Computed example of a mutant assay.
Amino acid sequence: MASQNIYILGIESSCDDTAAAVLCNGKIKSNIVATQKIHEEYGGVVPELASRAHQQNIVPVIDQAIKKAGITKEELSGIAFTRGPGLMGSLLVGTSFAKSMAMALDIPLIEVNHMQAHLLAHFIEEDGFEKPNFPFLGLTISGGHTQIVKVTDYFTMEVIGETLDDAVGEAYDKCGKMLNLPYPGGPLIDKYAQEG
């Protein structure tokens, strides 16, 4: 008897990118990201503008992710969504959409802590990449959060160090703004630093 495929739609809306991915039995079938260019003129993410852009982007991004995966929405087994941490308005857009879609399809809804998801993304099936052995030490650098985390198993994680104020990426972006570099400044500062 052949096993049935499990398709999970993942929705990410914690900051300024609207993203959706479809996984089949732990392997990525599609991954669509809509980047918000509006923040470039401000040199950083403006929360209200981010949430409005999520409202515009979420339907086409999810539609593209499902189509690229080669399935229909009725084949989905569940919907995972970013519950937090992140920008409140942005999270509400993703949460509301995920809840509505899961209710309409009568499928399970899976809340995801996006900081834990960064650490557990290493366990997504991908050719050429080995999964880490437990325990391992993880460094997360995401939005307003920079953490060093001891990961004992899938459900046991301990933050052993974190920033008190800005995350590393935000500090890079603020320095980039002071140097009159385009937003986001982090990648350019990294590039120029490597070139000396």
Rank of each mutant, 00 (worst) to 15 (best):
K37T: 13
I66H: 12
E125A: 10
Y172A: 08
E158V: 14
R83T: 01
I62N: 06
L91W: 01
T18E: 09
D106L: 06
I79Q: 02
T95R: 04
Y42N: 05
G10S: 13
S14Y: 02
P108S: 11
D165L: 07
K150L: 15
K68D: 15
A65K: 03
P132F: 11
G89E: 03
L23P: 01
K73V: 07
Y192R: 15
I32K: 06
Q147K: 14
T18F: 03
A20I: 13
H54D: 05
G26W: 13
I28L: 15
L91G: 01
S3H: 08
G169P: 14
E170Q: 14
L139R: 04
Y42A: 06
G26L: 02
E162N: 13
G86A: 10
Q116H: 15
G10F: 10
K73D: 05
G169Y: 10
P187L: 02
G86D: 02
I28F: 14
M115T: 15
D17M: 07
G186I: 01
M101V: 10
I160W: 06
E162C: 08
K27A: 15
N25G: 02
A50H: 06
Y154V: 02
T146Y: 03
L137R: 06
D173K: 02
T163C: 07
A19D: 00
K177I: 05
Q36W: 05
E126C: 11
S90R: 08
A102P: 01
K73S: 12
N133A: 13
L92K: 09
D190I: 14
G185L: 05
A20W: 07
P132K: 03
K191Y: 13
N133S: 13
G84T: 09
L92A: 06
I79G: 10
V33G: 03
I71A: 12
G128Y: 04
H122F: 09
G169K: 12
V112T: 01
N113L: 15
H122K: 10
L76T: 11
S142R: 04
G196Y: 07
K37C: 07
Q56S: 14
L181F: 14
V59Q: 08
M115A: 13
K27R: 15
H118P: 12
Q194L: 06
M103H: 05
L120I: 00
T95Q: 07
S3R: 06
E40T: 08
K191T: 12
E41D: 05
M103Y: 06
N31P: 09
K68G: 07
K131L: 02
G70F: 02
Y172V: 08
L119E: 06
L76V: 08
F129C: 09
S100W: 07
M178F: 03
D153P: 13
A80V: 01
V61H: 00
A65M: 09
L87Y: 00
C15S: 11
L87P: 01
E75R: 12
P60L: 07
V59Y: 13
A34Y: 14
G84E: 00
D190T: 14
V59A: 10
F129L: 11
G161A: 13
L91A: 00
